[in-house]
Amino acid sequence: MSIGNSPDGNSFEDERPFESDREDARSADRPSIGRALQQARIEAGLTVDDVSNATRVRIAIVHAIEQDNFAPCGGDVYARGHLRTLARAVRIDPAPLLAQYDADHGGRPAPTPAAPLFEAERIRPERRGPNWTAAMVAAIVAVIGFVGFTVVKGSGGDGTKTQVAEGSTPSTSKPASPTPKKAKPVDPKPDVSDSAIAAAPRDKVTVQVSAADGRSWISAKDHNGRLLFDGTLEKGDSKTFQDKEKIELVLGDAGAVQLFVNGKQIQDEFQAGQVERLTYTKGDPQAG
């Protein structure tokens, strides 16, 4: 009798388990997709909140997938995308999970419309506070604009220039009051008389220089040689200087100026274009 043959001459079937039986056995030992993700998350020391924040997958969907409930995903395409994202977040290879999902759900699904994906993976809007930086910038720009408008508006006025440069004790002059619309005409070149500085203190020397007939460069120093003024007086401008001992003057065009020293006008007949160097003390008027 031959071994391995049945009495009727047919061979015995192989007594080894079928390959399908082996696959079923391995499937029984393999954890589900949700269980595998949950175990990997726990081993990685992560919470569901950690995974949700890292992947932007809502907490409810993460819980559902770990319970092998893929309905909240919105379809097979999005379920596979969530599986890939969650597997990477918990540091495991997503390929076996995707293969297992395809085997359990009838193979790789066809693409689905984009609208369910948007609904399934809608990102929770972040609450933002007011933009204080933009508000501060807008406020600063408004203030700068208002200041600039005020300066430009206030810069208009008559063309008369009043210059006062004084020595050790400055003199005070009253600001010109605004001229009414229907005021009487005023002489644009009023005569400067002795009374203009008649109140000059006796214990000091007071010198007033007026560019009555034209412009002139002047320089003035006190008794210590300190420069009080060095510049040009335009026609109609004046300067007043005071010192406790003396004032030294240099006139670039002596014929264009009038001098008042200690309340009295100096009557020297200076020539136009003549340069004069003068010194005045408390005992003057008398040119030094």
Rank of each mutant, 00 (worst) to 15 (best):
T150C: 06
V151G: 01
W132R: 15
V143W: 08
A120G: 10
V152P: 00
R128C: 01
V151E: 01
A135Q: 15
P125D: 00
G129D: 06
G145I: 01
W132V: 13
E126K: 10
A120P: 02
V137Y: 11
I140H: 07
T133Y: 08
V147M: 04
V152E: 04
A138R: 04
V151S: 02
A142W: 11
T150Y: 06
F118Y: 05
N131Y: 07
V147R: 00
E121A: 06
F149S: 09
W132T: 15
L117V: 03
P125V: 07
E119W: 02
I144W: 10
N131D: 15
P116G: 03
G148M: 03
V151F: 04
V151L: 11
I123K: 13
V152Y: 09
I144F: 13
W132Y: 14
R122W: 09
W132H: 15
I144G: 08
E119G: 02
E126A: 13
G148V: 00
A139I: 11
G148L: 04
V152T: 08
A134T: 10
R127L: 11
N131C: 06
T133E: 10
P130Q: 12
V151N: 01
G154Q: 07
P130V: 11
N131A: 13
I144M: 12
F146Y: 05
R122G: 09
A138G: 11
A138C: 05
L117S: 05
F146M: 07
T150F: 05
F118W: 04
G154Y: 01
P130M: 09
A134R: 14
K153C: 06
M136K: 12
P130W: 07
T133C: 01
G154H: 02
M136R: 13
I123S: 13
G129V: 07
F149L: 13
I140A: 15
E126M: 11
V147N: 00
F118T: 07
M136Y: 09
G145D: 02
F149T: 09
V137W: 14
E119F: 02
G129T: 09
A142N: 03
P116W: 05
R122H: 12
F118I: 08
P116H: 05
P125Y: 02
K153N: 15
E126T: 14
A139S: 13
R127T: 13
E126V: 15
R128D: 00
R128L: 04
R128W: 01
R128K: 14
G129M: 07
A120D: 09
W132L: 13
I144E: 08
I123T: 15
I123C: 05
L117G: 06
A120N: 09
I123A: 15
A135K: 15
F146H: 01
A135E: 12
A120K: 05
P125T: 04
V137F: 14
T150K: 11
E126P: 01
G154P: 00
E119P: 00
F146T: 06
A142M: 14
E126C: 04
R128T: 04
V147T: 01
K153M: 12
R124A: 08
E121Y: 08
I123H: 11
I144K: 02
